[in-house]
Amino acid sequence: MREHRVESWLELQEALFAGSWNEALGRFRPSFVFRGVPDAGHDLSTSLNRQGGAFASHERDLLRAFRKYARGTSSRPCESVWDWLALAQHHGLPTRLLDWTFSPNVALHFLTEDPELYEVDGVVWCVDYRETNRLLPKPLQTQLREEGADVFTAEMLEAAAGDLPTFDRLTKHPFVLFLEPPSLDDRIVNQFALFSVMNGPMLRLDTFLESQKRGVRRLIVPASLKWEVRDKLDQANVTERVLFPGLDGLSRWLRRYYSPRPR
């Protein structure tokens, strides 16, 4: 894993889009996903990890209860455990999923959305999913190859592993894959969102990525650069108003946008 500290907006843009040229396609089509974190000291724990203790042992209980009580409340029917898991994560249930995006600018938004954290360095995690796919169990690699895909859909995962215990037993070695959820609402679409998922409720993605020599980098965004990044994202219309459509997102945007900059 490589770590690089950027010193300017232009250097940040160059670093985010490095390696995006796809020679076979003759297009700028990167195979990276991104996650922006406002504090570079924070790890990649999932919401299930962060609960601590024996909470992860209740993963199946949580999901079973969610499916029981949420049925009929969503406009889009869930057809597999992976649909349900994505829906649960989307609405705040602790799960083993972790939020990512295909968009570098969306990652920068989440890095700079909280002005109270502008005094600490942030980080953008950049992961090449084609590299992490090399470590997938053979059934999952076969699934990707047959579909001609690089990331999974819920339907694809359902065909390979119909439930979490089956998924966890695919191999004894830790692995990560990226799951593109169904378009549950405009928020998923506008955030260009996807999730990472590992084969165990307590596995930590940052621990897994530490040993990866290719396709993983951490871009440190210094605190001194955060205001410039935030202002330029606002000018580019990468805001809460767009990423969280509706009155809640509008209120979040206005509250942050009109917050005075501390002297």
Results as ranks from 00 to 15, higher is better:
1 M>A: 11
4 H>V: 13
4 H>M: 13
4 H>F: 09
6 V>G: 12
6 V>C: 14
6 V>K: 04
7 E>C: 02
8 S>T: 11
9 W>E: 14
10 L>E: 15
12 L>G: 10
15 A>L: 09
16 L>R: 01
17 F>P: 01
20 S>P: 12
21 W>R: 13
24 A>E: 15
24 A>G: 10
28 F>M: 11
29 R>S: 14
30 P>T: 13
34 F>P: 06
41 G>F: 01
43 D>A: 11
44 L>V: 05
46 T>R: 00
48 L>I: 07
52 G>A: 06
52 G>L: 09
53 G>M: 04
57 S>F: 05
59 E>L: 03
62 L>P: 01
63 L>E: 15
65 A>F: 05
68 K>H: 11
70 A>M: 14
70 A>Y: 09
71 R>T: 12
76 R>K: 13
76 R>S: 05
79 E>S: 11
80 S>W: 01
85 L>Q: 01
85 L>Y: 01
86 A>F: 00
88 A>C: 02
90 H>S: 13
91 H>F: 06
99 D>M: 06
99 D>I: 03
99 D>P: 13
108 L>M: 13
110 F>W: 02
110 F>D: 00
113 E>D: 15
115 P>E: 14
119 E>T: 08
122 G>D: 14
122 G>L: 07
124 V>Q: 00
126 C>G: 06
129 Y>N: 13
140 L>I: 06
141 Q>A: 06
143 Q>A: 13
144 L>Q: 09
144 L>S: 10
144 L>C: 10
146 E>L: 08
148 G>R: 12
149 A>P: 08
149 A>S: 13
152 F>K: 00
153 T>A: 02
154 A>N: 00
163 D>T: 06
165 P>G: 09
166 T>I: 06
169 R>Y: 03
172 K>C: 05
175 F>Y: 12
177 L>D: 11
177 L>F: 01
182 P>M: 05
184 L>C: 02
186 D>P: 04
188 I>C: 04
189 V>F: 08
193 A>K: 02
193 A>Q: 09
199 N>A: 03
199 N>H: 04
201 P>S: 00
203 L>W: 00
206 D>M: 03
206 D>T: 05
209 L>H: 08
213 K>Q: 13
227 W>R: 15
228 E>W: 07
228 E>L: 08
229 V>H: 10
229 V>I: 12
229 V>A: 10
230 R>Y: 12
232 K>T: 12
234 D>M: 03
240 E>V: 01
241 R>F: 01
242 V>C: 11
246 G>R: 08
251 S>C: 06
252 R>C: 10
255 R>M: 10
257 Y>W: 12
260 P>Y: 02
261 R>K: 15
263 R>M: 08
